[in-house]
Write a protein that binds this DNA or RNA. Structure first.
Length: 464
RNA sequence: GCUUCCUUAGCUCAGCCGGUUAGAGCAUCUGACUGUUAAUCAGAGGGUCCCUGGUUCGAGCCCAGGAGGGAGCGCCA
């Protein structure tokens, strides 16, 4: 009768000692002498390792030699109270099987720390490090919490298309999707590429946002959200941008800007609280290893109200600030990251929600205020991250929307269906977009967004 | 796309003013040690100094071009 495999997490928590167990995982380190060997095994279920103790005389030298850092092993033994300090329980090995060897001369990971830049080059192995194990478990917990929150609050999960036929959304450069041959595409009489010959019979792209389709669903189901991959072909080289990222976009009928802000704040606090409750060990590790203020900062976000003010008020604060800015502040221009950082990190020292931006620096679909100069936009700004959420109340008036589209050169023909939403049973509604990786960045305290997604996509890089 | 810094052992880095045989810590290997905790101690092996060209009696070091990476900015989530 074979014993079933236990996870390292379950064994470390177990109170039932003196029983036979089987554990399988990857060797982090092995040390000891010719009489006793200590093997640290990790299986990804927790950041902590299980200590396996092996009496060296009981195992062939060949087997122990293969139990090197990086190797995959299966261990059968007795779960016992540890004689040493540093762990409550350990496994006294009876049988050790090496499932997969790892040549120590060639295995790139060591028990000592590696730079995040180096680990980025071996993205196929970095999940086996403490850091990326912690980040990936947190990423999972946060993704799960997104669905949990929305489900508990009466939202429906909508799957918006990855391939879109419109490039009018104005959220940035798009990746083209085509099956036409790149070297000799069919041409029209006038010499242009003939997209009627393409797979979909028209130009298509990868989505930059599910919002417009989200609005369709919101004006039928009430409260909806999307959570899917999003693609931007911008040549962005920063620690906050990816070419492929995951975005969460709730869209709610009968919500105004105020309701939108309430939701954004409550949602973010829920997610951070969830991580604090479900992943204390991983957060403690990241706090100790990378950012001593991480846990304090997360708790602070949960405990305090976000500062809400209008763009106009923010401009006044920045104009009277003693700090010298590289870029001048002027009503009507978009705030630079140095301005946003000043408001969040220096002036208020807490998350900030900025609202009512000048209409000329925001998208066509945002609802115009009565002053005719500002729109009901909101940006949620976080310390170290900058803009984590961008959203707005949407323009529900057909004529006002058409006017804005004309002013901003958005073709009505392509978005006829979007205008139809205002033509038939229009309703006040609002929504926002939350960059999932920016959330993970904030919660983990990592410095670069390329380290919070398993396989980052950015200019000149699509390895793995 | 712009600005700026970097590239030397498997990893992290030092390398003086351009001068003989390029160093350290960790990792790896060998040995010692009967309970280790990033174990410790002793020893050994390990180099296309990113690439190409140039200057020079002589280049890891200076110059030009290229490649790769980081940080900041812009675009945004």
């Amino acid at each position: 009768m074979s014993v079933r495999r236990s996870s390292v997490q379950d064994l470390l928590r177990s109170q039932e000692l003196e029983r036979e167990v089987v554990v399988k995982g990857w060797v982090r380190t092995r040390r000891g002498n010719k009489y006793v060997q200590f093997i640290a095994v990790n299986d990804g279920s927790t950041i902590h390792n299980l200590q396996v103790v092996a009496d060296a005389e009981k195992f062939p030298e060949e087997t122990l030699k293969d139990v090197a850092t990086g190797a995959c092993v299966s261990v059968r033994g007795q779960l016992v109270a540890s004689q040493g300090k540093g762990q409550a329980v350990e496994v006294q090995a009876v049988e050790i099987q090496v499932l997969g060897k790892a040549d120590p001369e060639q295995y790139p990971l060591q028990k000592k720390g590696h730079s995040l830049e180096f680990l980025r080059e071996i993205a196929h192995l970095r999940p086996r490090t403490n850091t990326f194990g912690a980040v990936l478990r947190l990423r999972h917990a946060l993704a799960f919490a997104v669905h949990q929150y929305f489900n508990d609050h009466g939202f429906y999960y909508i799957h918006t298309p990855i391939i879109t036929g419109s490039d009018a959304e104005g959220a940035g450069q798009m990746f083209r999707v085509t099956t036409l041959p790149a070297d000799h595409p069919p041409r029209t009489a006038s010499g242009d590429v003939d997209y009627t010959e393409d797979f979909f019979g028209k130009q298509t792209n990868l989505t930059v946002s599910g919002q417009l389709e989200g609005e369709i669903a919101a004006l039928a189901l009430g409260k909806v959200y999307t959570f899917g991959p999003t693609f931007r072909a911008e040549n962005s080289n920063t620690a906050r941008h990816l070419a492929e990222f995951w975005m969460i976009e709730p869209e709610m009928a009968f919500y105004d800007l105020q309701d939108n802000m309430e939701l954004a704040e409550d949602f973010l606090k829920y997610l951070v609280r969830y991580a604090l409750e479900k992943c204390p060990d991983d957060l403690q590790f990241l706090n100790d290893q990378y950012d001593k203020e991480l846990l304090g900062r997360l708790q602070f976000v949960v405990d305090n109200d976000f500062q809400r003010l209008t763009y106009t008020e923010a401009v006044e604060i920045l104009k009277t600030a003693k700090k010298k800015f590289e870029f001048p502040v002027d009503w009507g221009t978009d705030l630079q990251s140095e301005h946003e950082r000043y408001l969040v990190e220096k002036h208020f020292k807490k998350p900030v929600i900025l609202t009512d931006y000048p209409k000329d620096i925001k998208a066509f679909y945002m609802k115009l205020n009565d002053d005719n100069r500002t729109v009901r936009a909101m940006d949620v700004l976080f310390p170290g991250i900058g803009e984590i959420i961008g959203g707005s109340q949407r323009e529900e008036d057909l004529e006002k929307l058409r006017t804005r589209m004309q002013q901003m050169n958005v073709p009505e023909e392509e978005l006829w269906w979007y205008l139809d939403l205002r033509r038939f049973g229009s309703a006040p509604h609002a929504g926002f977009g939350l960059g999932f990786e920016r959330l993970v960045l904030f919660v983990t305290g990592m410095g670069n967004i390329r380290d919070v997604i398993p396989f980052p996509r950015f200019p000149k890089n699509a390895e793995f």
